[in-house]
Design a binder for these strands. Structure first.
Length: 829
DNA sequence: AGCACGCCGACT
DNA sequence: GTCGGCGTGCTC
């Protein structure tokens, strides 16, 4: 007897362990590690994943049930991915099924559907009246009908159906269904040529259109998509269907891969000659590939230094060894330009995965990988799970980007997943960045941090010796002293005027969307805040309303103060909308494209704006951080940052790092081609080292100072953090649950003999801070408290947290407090 | 998670 | 006297 260990799709702590099932003979050949199966579980049928097989002796056979079904011909997960999932669930304290689920396209998130069918031999109940008989008619010829569609059809006959179920006239069954929609198109199959000739001879003369179609098929005797045939013969689809109805041709539904890049031409490109610096950077990566040993590289290259060409050539090597490669790119940088580079080098061997694809398109790209039709996967965060079997290389471009951290459960970091996956499969990893995260940099410098040491590779110069742009920092306090109260400093205004005159382009960055940041009454001090979230509302000019950027709540623009009815209600702070308006006032006739989440929600709009800008249909591209990343426009010679220190005041230990990275990245957008670039940074805090270091493009200087601070405070990369958030509709439960967690953690730390994480020296230590209200104390009508676990040294704090939560399990569940764990949180919010 | 089993109020 | 409310407990 074969017994499979199955993780069922119930994402809770209590069910987060394998359950054993007998594998029936008919399914034995299909059941593998990684198979997606349907299993009976507590009175219903659920989806699950096979994670192993159990020796018969170890299993209590009395309670054993059997697998109901295997859901895919090819297991959607490989054994290596299952193993990676186990590692993830430990590392990020989440149920295994959540980790496994995160690896699959949404199309494969199976749901159980309840079906109702008439019982064997059941007839219309004799006592049924006319309307009841109509309900019974829904089960024509004994077929099963979805419970949900029954209720839709007969909204108030639920009780009747329940009665019939009880009386045994109807039976219930459950099926696990995919949400997948494999797209099918009708394809016309012509009969063989003899039959065709015969048909043509005998065909009624008055059916001229149908005759035309047959004549066309006689000349082109291959299957052809119905739509294409209709087009070619200039008839309507109806005519062809009529042909099929009389049996002259056959129409079959054929699955079609939706290729989102269909119809686009990709000029083939071949490897470029590398500069000596690029060659020196590629060499160690190449030798690691050649020896098939797992190594991690940090490729530190300034903006415009040609990192992508190194990726391309490394991938080329990897492919020629018969291995596969994954390239991770921040979602925002996954632009058509980026994809073009990979498509033109590797053609159809590339699969592209990103969030702008429809669910179906995404599934098709995923299948290309799983079925071995693609060998290179390019995509955002989740592409790290591309179901390859022989991975040789994982590239993470812009590795410092925060978008690699998933903010929903499982709260994994793709950089860490990549390193572990590569370790499991003996692959090389390349982290690329102009401004590496301090974690990666420190690991490369000291050889601590990641599973293996990180090898540091640098590209210090831009390709073609193009100089980095000159950076000018403008002290806005000084501007104010000189009497300039506008949002553009004299320097920026002049620089913009110059671009307009020279017909060059500018990029302006302001890290705040909306019109103004908060609305306050000058009489009573009332500020408009979200009724669900304890956060200030932002005024949006276009829609004339106030919106919450956290939960989406919106209310009409107030005319008077909601609190004291005074008319002195004013809008403070500056958002992108307000800047757009100010630009129009200051520079009459200026053409501005504004890009922020408000203007880019529509599918393809992102691309549309960038194309317009590229075609020079605008002078200025104004936006939030999305304009800072990866764009490359030859005519951009000016980059302006309106409020460089906006992020510095956030309660986030990475605020300085973020600021430096953002400023450096956006500065890199200027002067990438023939025309020299200039950067103007406006700030109220010009002395702050995260702003000042941008001027000399001084990454190392910045890092030295920041690492010093981090070491003093025990923050990453020297210490690590776990934030545990407790949420509930009311406060009292939160405090007691939080305190219980903190107490149990402290007890555990004490029993392990751990001291404080902030002690001098390098001894392992742990501090448990809180519970305190979260930086956003209420979100979507739920109050939030958090504890922060700060630790350093060789401690498995994830495991400790998991154990403590396990101990608290019942208690927290009864109280209804929801607990969220974020290991190595990205934001402190 | 969801469904079963189990004990108390408003209906035929 | 029954239908159904949702509190606890289990699911191979």
């Amino acid at each position: 007897m074969i017994i499979a260990r199955v993780i069922v799709d119930v994402p809770t702590r209590e069910t987060d362990r394998p359950f054993d099932y007998e594998v029936p003979e008919r399914l034995a050949a299909w059941t593998e590690i990684g198979s997606r199966v349907a299993v009976p579980f507590g009175g219903r049928t659920l989806q699950g994943f096979v994670v192993g097989f159990a020796p018969e002796a170890e299993v209590d056979r009395s309670r054993l049930k059997s697998l109901t079904d295997v859901l895919d011909a090819l297991p959607p997960l490989t054994p290596e991915l299952v193993e990676l999932g186990v590692w993830m669930s430990r590392r990020w304290v989440c149920p295994l099924v959540v980790a496994l689920q995160a690896m699959l396209p949404a199309a494969l998130k199976g749901r159980t559907e309840k079906y109702i069918a008439p019982a064997e031999g059941a007839e219309v109940p004799p006592d049924a009246d006319e309307s009841e008989a109509a309900v019974w008619q829904a089960f024509r010829r004994g077929s099963a009908v979805k419970w949900s569609s029954l209720l839709q059809q007969f909204p108030d006959r639920g009780p009747l159906l329940k009665r019939w179920l009880k009386e045994g006239r109807l039976t219930e069954l459950q099926k696990v269904e995919d949400r997948l929609s494999v797209k099918t198109v009708p394809v016309v199959y012509p009969p063989d040529s003899d039959k065709l000739d015969e048909l043509l001879r005998e065909f009624p003369a008055r059916a001229r259109k149908q005759r035309d179609v047959l004549a066309y098929l006689a000349e082109h005797p291959e299957p052809i998509a119905l739509a294409a045939l209709a087009e070619a013969t200039d008839v309507s689809a109806q005519v062809i269907r009529a042909l099929a109805d009389r049996g002259s041709v056959e129409i079959r539904q054929v699955t079609e891969d939706r290729d989102p890049y269909q119809g686009r031409e990709f000029a083939a490109s071949s490897p470029l000659a590398l500069t000596p610096a690029q060659q020196a950077a590629l060499d160690p990566i190449a030798s690691s590939l050649a020896s098939r040993e797992h190594r991690v590289f940090l490729l530190h290259g300034v903006t415009g230094s040609g990192k992508t060409e190194i990726y391309l050539q490394a991938i080329q090597m990897c492919l020629s060894q018969g291995r596969e490669a994954i390239v991770l790119v921040p979602e925002i940088a996954l632009t058509p330009q980026m994809v073009d580079r990979f498509k033109s080098r590797f053609g159809a061997r590339v699969a592209v995965l990103h969030s702008r694809l429809s669910q179906g398109e995404r599934y098709d790209e995923w299948r290309k990988i799983r079925e071995g039709r693609a060998q290179v996967a390019v995509g955002a965060r989740s592409a790290v799970f591309a179901p390859f079997a022989k991975i040789g290389l994982i590239v993470i471009d812009e590795e410092h980007e925060t978008s690699y951290k998933q903010e929903e459960s499982p709260k994994y970091h793709a950089r860490d997943v990549a390193a572990e996956r590569a370790r499991l499969s003996g692959a090389a990893v390349v982290f690329g960045s102009a401004t590496p995260s301090l974690e990666s940099y420190a690991a490369a410098a000291d050889g601590e941090g990641y599973a293996g040491d990180i090898t540091y590779v640098a590209l210090p110069e831009r390709v073609g010796d193009r100089p980095l742009p000159a950076v000018r920092i403008v002290d806005m306090r000084e501007e104010l002293r000189l009497g300039n109260r506008a949002m553009f400093s004299g320097a920026l205004k002049q620089a913009l005027e110059e671009r307009l005159r020279r017909e060059e382009q500018a990029v302006l960055l302001l890290n705040r969307r909306g019109y103004s940041t908060f609305v306050m009454c000058r009489s009573c001090g009332y500020t408009c805040s979200c009724p669900h979230c304890d956060i200030a509302l932002t005024y949006h000019r276009g829609s004339r309303n106030l919106r919450c950027h956290y939960c989406g709540y919106a209310e009409a623009e107030p005319e008077t103060c909601p609190s004291c009815q005074s008319k002195h209600i004013r809008f403070f702070g500056t958002g992108t909308q307000k800047v757009e308006e100010a630009l129009a006032e200051t520079f009459p006739g200026i053409r501005v494209i504004r890009m922020d989440v408000d203007t880019t929600t529509e599918k393809g709009s992102h691309e549309k704006w960038l194309t317009m800008f590229r075609e020079r249909k605008a002078d200025v591209l104004l936006g939030t951080q999305m304009v800072a990343k990866g764009l490359d426009f030859p005519r951009v010679t000016l980059v302006g940052v309106l409020a460089a220190d906006a992020a510095l005041r956030l309660p986030d230990f990475r605020a300085a790092e973020r600021t430096f990275q953002l400023l450096t990245q956006v500065a890199g957008r200027a002067g990438r081609h023939e025309l020299p670039g200039e950067v103007v940074i406006q700030t109220y805090d010009p002395e702050h080292f995260s702003v000042a270091s941008v001027q000399g493009h001084d990454y190392k200087g910045f890092v030295r100072q920041e690492l010093h601070t981090r070491r003093l405070l025990g923050y990453p990369p020297y210490g690590r953090l776990i934030s545990v958030t407790f949420t509930h509709e009311s406060v009292p439960m939160l405090l007691s649950t939080g305190e219980m967690f903190a107490r149990l953690m402290r007890e555990r730390a004490a029993s392990m003999g751990l001291g404080s994480a902030a002690q001098p020296g390098d001894r392992p230590g742990m501090d448990v801070l809180g519970p305190v209200p979260s930086p956003i104390p209420r979100l979507k009508d739920r109050y939030r408290f958090q504890c922060m676990v700060k630790y350093r040294g060789e401690i498995d704090a994830s495991a400790m947290t998991a154990r403590v939560l396990q101990e608290m399990g019942d208690n927290a569940k009864r109280s209804g407090v929801q607990i969220g764990v974020d290991v190595d949180p990205q934001m402190m919010l």
